[in-house]
Design a protein around this nucleic acid. Structure first.
Length: 371
DNA sequence: AAATTGCACAACCGCATTCTC
DNA sequence: AGAGAATGCGGTTGTGCAATT
C-alpha cells in the first residue's frame, strides 16, 4: 500500500479543460500505434500537454473503441437502479454489466435523473415491493412505465449539432419515434456495406443505425404506438443526432466512403477528380459535403483557420499511423480543400501543400476550436 | 429578444488500491 | 516487508446548451 501521494504530473505544465479534436486525434493515433502501457509517460511520448490521468480518462470514457454512446434505454436504466440497489455506488462494478458503457456515464445518469426518479417513486408510495418491479423482474417491466419514459424522453432532447443530423436534415431525412425512441439493437460495424451515399442513406434509415450508434431525440408527446416511423419527407427539425465517436467503426466508415482505396503515390486533387473511382459527380459532391461536415464536426474548419492548413496539421499528427487514417485524411483534403494537394507514398500521407505553390510546405497554424 | 434557470455531461480532484522493485 | 509509483474509482465541479420566463 502506498504512502503519501506523489503528484501525478506537474500541474503548471499541463493543459486542462475540454479536449480539442487535434488532441483526441493525437491520443487515438498514439494508442493505436503503441498502446497504453504507461499512462504517466504517455502524454510526453504522444506530445500531449496533458496529465496521464486526463489521457486515461479521455480514452476510457470517450475515445476507446466499443463505447456505446447515446441515451440509456429504459431497460438499461431500470437495470442500473436495481444494480445500484444491490451494489451501492460501485459504478465500475455496475458498468461491468453494460458492455460499452462507462462508469462515468452511468454515474452521471444516476446523479442526473435516476436518483430523482427513485425518490419520486418512493414519495409517490411506490416501493420496489408493491411495484412488482423487484430486482429480478425489473428489467422486463420498463415499458409499463410510460410516464417515466416520457419524462426521460423530454430530458433527452439535448440537441448537439451532429454530423448525422446535418446529413439527415440536408437529405430531408428525419426519424420520428412514436415510442420512447430507444432501441437496443446489437452493435455491429456499420462500415462494412456502405460504399456510396445512397447506401449511407439506407443505413441512416435502418434500425441498426439508430440502435447501435445514434442518439434519438424525440417528440415531446409520446404516443401509445410502439412502432418506429421514418418519414423521409418530413420537415421537422433535429430529430436525430450523432456524437462524434472516434472508434474503429468511425474510421472504417470513412474508409467505406473512400474512393481512394487503391491510391498510389503523389495523387493530386486534380487526379482525384479525374479518376473513375468516384461513381458519379453527384456522389462526389455528396461525399464532399459529408466530409466538410465531418471537418466541421472535428473543429478543423471555420473562420479561424484554413481548411487545408487544418488538414496539414492532421497530416502531421497522423505520422506513422495506420493506413486507414492516412486515406481518411487524404480524402478530407480532396473533398474540402481544393486549394491544397496532398502527396502519398506507400499509401501514406507524406505532405499537404498549397496547390499553387507545390514547392512550399503548408503552414501549420495552431488549431482553434470553433465557437 | 434578453435574461434566467435547469439539465446533461465531460473532466477534474483526491483518496484507495494495486503493482513493482 | 515496505516504500514509492501507477492506476482505479467515486465525488464533485465547470461549462455549454436548451427551455423557460
Amino acid at each position: 500500500m502506498g504512502r503519501g501521494r506523489a503528484p501525478c504530473c506537474d500541474k503548471n505544465k499541463v493543459k486542462k479543460g475540454p479536449w480539442t479534436p487535434a488532441e483526441d486525434l493525437r491520443l487515438i493515433t498514439f494508442i493505436r500505434n503503441h498502446g497504453h502501457q504507461n499512462w504517466r509517460a504517455l502524454p510526453k511520448q504522444a506530445g500531449l500537454l496533458r496529465c496521464g490521468k486526463s489521457c486515461r480518462l479521455r480514452w476510457i470514457n470517450y475515445l476507446r473503441p466499443g463505447i456505446k454512446r447515446g441515451n440509456f434505454t429504459p431497460q438499461e436504466e431500470e437495470t442500473i437502479i436495481s444494480l445500484q440497489n444491490l451494489f451501492g455506488n460501485k459504478w465500475s462494478k455496475i458498468a461491468s454489466h453494460f458492455p460499452g458503457r462507462t462508469d462515468n456515464e452511468i454515474k452521471n445518469v444516476w446523479n442526473t435523473h435516476l436518483k430523482k426518479r427513485l425518490s419520486n417513486r418512493k414519495s409517490a408510495g411506490f416501493t420496489q415491493k408493491n411495484d412488482s418491479c423487484t430486482s429480478s423482474s425489473i428489467i422486463s417491466c420498463g415499458n409499463r412505465e410510460k410516464g417515466i419514459q416520457q419524462s426521460i424522453f423530454k430530458k433527452s432532447n439535448q440537441n448537439k449539432q451532429g454530423l448525422l443530423k446535418e446529413i439527415s436534415t440536408r437529405r430531408g431525412l428525419s426519424v420520428e419515434p412514436k415510442e420512447s425512441g430507444h432501441f437496443d439493437s446489437p452493435t455491429s460495424s456499420y462500415a462494412s456495406n456502405i460504399s456510396n451515399v445512397s447506401q449511407l442513406d439506407d443505413f441512416l434509415r435502418s434500425d441498426e443505425a439508430v440502435g447501435s450508434r445514434f442518439n434519438f431525440t424525440g417528440p415531446k408527446q409520446v404516443d401509445d404506438d410502439m412502432s418506429l416511423e421514418i418519414n423521409p419527407n418530413s420537415s421537422s427539425d433535429e430529430k436525430i443526432e450523432i456524437s462524434f465517436v472516434s472508434d474503429v467503426d468511425f474510421w472504417n466508415m470513412l474508409d467505406a466512403l473512400d474512393p481512394l482505396q487503391s491510391s498510389t503515390e503523389s495523387q493530386s486533387n486534380d487526379q482525384y477528380k479525374d479518376s473513375n473511382l468516384v461513381e458519379n459527380s453527384e456522389c462526389e459532391v455528396e461525399c464532399g459535403k459529408w466530409l466538410r461536415n465531418l471537418e466541421n464536426e472535428l473543429g478543423l474548419a471555420g473562420e479561424n483557420i484554413e481548411c487545408g492548413a487544418a488538414c496539414s496539421e492532421v497530416a502531421l499528427l497522423v505520422g506513422d499511423t495506420s493506413l486507414d487514417i492516412h486515406r481518411s485524411v487524404a480524402l478530407l483534403v480532396s473533398a474540402t480543400s481544393p486549394e491544397y494537394q496532398y502527396s502519398m507514398k506507400d499509401s501514406r500521407l507524406v505532405s499537404v501543400v498549397p496547390a499553387k505553390d507545390p514547392l512550399s510546405s503548408a503552414s501549420v497554424p495552431g488549431i482553434k476550436r470553433m465557437g
